[in-house]
């Protein structure tokens, strides 16, 4: 127990001290911030995709809403971008309700496909809106006017802001996980039919999880805009972004508190470092390596990296059916 406690303290110290230790290298310092930012959106996705088992492949919708809200606050209202974040959360929750009510009735892959379609729909529509800058996108403040523009040269302030937000998201997830809602969500994930027969209002709880998840993904989008200062339909609503969020959570371990963070810890440095080392040669080797590593992890640890820790010698291995029978189209 004490050893475990010591390890936990050591981890907290490392996390807190990271940007100070790496102060000499802006690239490494920034890498820390990028990991945290990715972990925020992946952790937000985890609430609905991991715990409730509703695999959304369209979370870029909410990320984009967050990013666009922030940039709109600057462009149209002349406010610091970050003040658009609460607006983005509200819009995201509303949009999540509109998308969720019809699509959450679908089960399995049908839900995933519907979220892909909705994501593409939003991307195309956003590129036709002049108010949102159309296909050219919108840029934040070119030069920081006040500190509230959150436009810094050093990545250190971003690191601590992202860390605080991530802690908030994880804290809330932990609270949900242990409460009644967590219990319901797990029941729905295991068997929606069984959950319903026990009197769980499956539809309602799935929607709650979806809206909550949307709100936090939107915050990640707003923070992204503050750091990078630009968003266009592809970088805000692109399908690749949706898939990356999902892959990060799945790689670490979906439905586990720290799964998305572990996924981000592996994938973001992998992507950045391989691009730094190999990208300049211009043959796409970066993504060959990146793809191969994802394949290998999926092949040997289909439940994510965190499943490594769970394997205990005597514990009975969970026998999954070799061939799960195809899910029906209907959720009920």
């Amino acid at each position: 127990m004490t050893a475990r406690r010591l390890l936990q303290i050591a981890l907290v110290v490392v996390v807190l001290a990271y940007p100070i230790v790496t102060a000499g290298s802006p690239v490494w310092q920034r890498l820390g911030a990028l990991v945290l930012l990715a972990a925020i959106s992946a952790s937000a996705w985890n609430i609905v995709g991991g715990y409730a088992g509703q695999v959304s492949v369209g979370h870029a919708v909410f990320f984009g809403i967050g990013a666009y809200s922030a940039v709109v606050a600057f462009v149209h209202l002349d406010l610091p971008p970050i003040l658009g974040a609460p607006l983005g959360m509200l819009v995201s929750v509303a949009v999540a309700a509109v998308i969720g009510v019809p699509t959450l009735r679908l089960s399995g892959h049908y839900f995933s496909m519907a979220t892909i379609a909705v994501g593409e729909l939003v991307r195309v529509l956003s590129s036709t809106s002049d108010w949102l800058g159309g296909a050219q996108g919108l840029g934040g403040p070119a030069m920081p006017r006040t500190v509230f523009d959150l436009s810094f040269v050093s990545a250190m302030p971003y690191y601590y802001i992202f860390l605080a937000v991530l802690a908030g998201v994880l804290g809330l997830t932990w609270w949900i996980e242990r409460g009644r809602m967590g219990f319901y969500l797990r029941a729905i994930k295991d068997s929606e039919r069984a959950a319903r027969s026990l009197g769980v209002s499956a539809g309602r709880y799935k929607l709650y999880a979806y809206m909550l998840s949307a709100a936090f993904t939107s915050v990640a989008g707003s923070l992204y805009l503050c750091m990078f200062g630009f968003v266009d339909p592809e970088s805000g609503f692109g399908i690749l972004l949706s898939v990356k969020i999902l892959v990060m959570a799945a790689l670490g371990g979906a439905g586990q508190l720290f799964g998305p963070l572990v996924g981000a810890l592996i994938l973001v440095p992998l992507e950045e470092l391989s691009n730094s080392l190999l990208g300049g040669q211009g043959a796409g080797i970066t993504f060959v390596v990146y793809g191969a590593i994802i394949v290998i992890i999926a092949r040997f640890l289909p439940s994510g990296l965190l499943s490594l820790l769970e394997r205990r010698p005597n514990a009975p291995t969970k026998a999954a059916p070799v061939n799960p029978s195809p899910a029906s189209g209907h959720a009920d």
Binding site: V27, F228, D232, S276, G279
Partner: peptide
């Protein structure tokens, strides 16, 4: 010449520019 890949994304463009300048 030190080449870097922006991967077609604004984020990679910014990250790599930082690397070119600072590293």
């Amino acid at each position: 010449m030190v080449f870097a890949d922006n991967q077609g994304t604004p984020a990679a463009g910014q990250n790599q520019t930082l690397r070119l300048i600072t590293e």
